[in-house]
Amino acid sequence: MMKTGFLTVAVLLATAAVATTGAVAQTKPTAITIATEGSYEPWNFTSAGGKLEGLEVDLANDLCARMGVTCAIVAQDWDGLIPALNARKFDAIMASLIVTEKRLGVISFSEPYAPTSAAFMVEKSGPLAKLPGANSTVDLGGDPAAVNAALAPVAAALKGKSIGAQTGTKNTDFLDSYLKGSVTVREYKTTEQHDLDLQAGRIDGVMAQKSSLTALLLKPDYKNYTLAGPTFVGGVFGKGIAVGLRKDDATLKAMFDTAIQAAKADGTIEKLAQKWLKTSLN
């Protein structure tokens, strides 16, 4: 795992170098607009008073300083992020956007700034708290037989339950492709909305990024909830979280790549992870 991570970084570094040299002809922007979702605590959310905050907001400001550009950070609904990027409503997306093949068909990505994994959150006293596979990790990109063996008991336990997930995320893809027929999938515009519905008891669990759920569970509002079942990585869950960019914006991609490498190298990203996620990214 560590080794492939290192290899990916090396390959990305090389492509970044090529991209930088290839893109000198494009003029370097001095001001950019970055869109985030603003309702995905602790990655990006809106605090009292309506201010955007979170790991990605801090990181965006840090990266902009490194790139020497002034940046405006705006909030945009999740399901409109990619279409709006391509409609040039803004220049970059930093909203826990995972690199996937399908998204690579319509936009490009910077080097990833965080790895990703997904998990279920359920009520502590509910029937799903004992979902099989706790503390194990299922690599969906791994051996299909092993994946099926690990998923079968989970699917059985989830039979007839309803799980909430955000529209257009890899979580709905996962539920649709791996647990179809077993669970009822309810799709929400924001994760905050499925959290509200979980608390209201309209759904039996939610699926979201593990880092985000872990941080939520530290809050007093969530004392009756817990993670359940295995952690899912790889496969539909893609290659990590990265900045989403327009395909024709090679200059900006090169600028982001360089800045992200620097932020990784000097420990800035790790420091932000400790601050917001209360855990290490690695």
Partner: peptide, 22 residues
């Protein structure tokens, strides 16, 4: 509100999501 302008409904939505007091 669906296109991201912070008018009254969106402000309420943001507050509801952030404080869990819809």
């Amino acid at each position: 509100s669906v296109i991201g302008l912070v008018e009254l409904l969106r402000a309420a939505q943001i507050g509801a999501g952030s404080t869990r007091q819809p």
